[in-house]
Write a protein that binds this DNA or RNA. Structure first.
Length: 271
DNA sequence: CAGCGCCCCTGCCCGC
DNA sequence: TGCGGGCAGGGGCGCT
């Protein structure tokens, strides 16, 4: 999926289009996503007004007076706001039609995404209540990360990607942040020094902010909700650079697999 | 409890 | 060209 920058980019692009819109109907073509889409969603959302669109980690929340629609883009999910009718393609699973004739389309070829309904208080929803800290807020700092990593034996990369600790960091930005901080992905989290924790926090924030600024890194499947393909404006230093020379020391970047995901790093720059 | 793999699914790319 | 295998941005869950 899109990681935090892509989800936030999606949210910002959609926000002004969907807020205050009144739902006319919901078309469901495929219920089988990560979890089944509630079949009675149309009934639940009929005549309801979208009050707000927020983000918690990589979850988007469409707020209504009586609850919230919880949406996760999974690996390949996209949201596209349409101003006029448009025939659905193979993976266009959901259309949310508004009373003014516009509609929001949820497309997800791999179907790892999710669309769920949650009654207030939504923060108590099982998918949301254990979410960790947002990486771009002030309280995510060296002391926080240092404290969170004590006595943790798992590799630091795995910890970065654990949404119970920190939200929004996926396989791309975990690798990029670790490279920028000069820390090996395999290093046991508990062995980080306070100084390294500080460098890692700075690196995470810098990488995410750069990606946000460029509207989210755009990869194979990711498309901004306005339909543009975007571009690879964020210069990735290690992700997908297997076998290429390190941009700092020119030694060949190394690739390993960590919990099923490929991980690229520089064996010399990262300690 | 902590940590690690599995698996849900389709598309794409590569090698044969 | 066709086909099989491997891999892709996630993350909850079940097992050890």
């Amino acid at each position: 999926m899109p990681e935090l920058p892509e989800v936030e980019t999606t949210r910002l692009a959609l926000k002004n289009f969907v807020i205050q819109q009144v739902i006319k109907s919901v078309t469901l073509r495929q219920l089988k996503l990560r979890w089944p889409i509630p079949a009675d969603l149309d009934k639940k959302l009929h005549n309801k007004t979208v009050l707000d669109l927020t983000r918690m980690g990589k979850y988007l929340l469409f707020h209504f007076q009586n609850g919230a629609l919880l949406l996760h883009l999974g690996m390949s999910g996209r949201l596209h706001f349409h101003q006029e009718p448009c025939a659905p393609g193979a993976h266009d699973h959901v259309d949310i039609h508004f009373q003014n004739g516009t509609f929001l389309r949820f497309t997800d070829p791999r179907r790892f995404g999710a669309l769920l309904w949650t009654e207030a208080p939504f923060a108590e929803h099982k998918l949301l209540k254990h979410l960790g800290i947002e990486p771009l807020i002030k309280t995510f700092n060296a002391a926080y990360l240092f404290e969170q990593t004590r006595r943790r034996k798992l590799p630091i990369k795995s910890l970065l990607m654990d949404s119970k600790v920190i939200v929004g960091i996926g396989n791309i930005y975990a690798q990029e942040a670790l490279f920028e901080a000069g820390i090996k992905p395999t290093k046991a989290a508990g062995l980080l020094t306070l100084a390294q924790s500080g460098r890692l926090v700075k690196a995470i924030q810098s990488v995410l902010k750069k990606a946000l600024k460029s509207g989210g890194t755009t990869f194979r499947d990711f498309r901004s909700p306005d339909g543009s393909r975007g571009y690879f404006s964020l210069k990735l230093k290690v992700y997908g650079k297997e076998g290429l020379p390190c941009s700092v020391c020119a030694s060949t970047l190394k690739t390993i697999r960590m919990s099923g995901r490929s991980t690229v790093y520089c064996n010399f720059c990262q300690k």
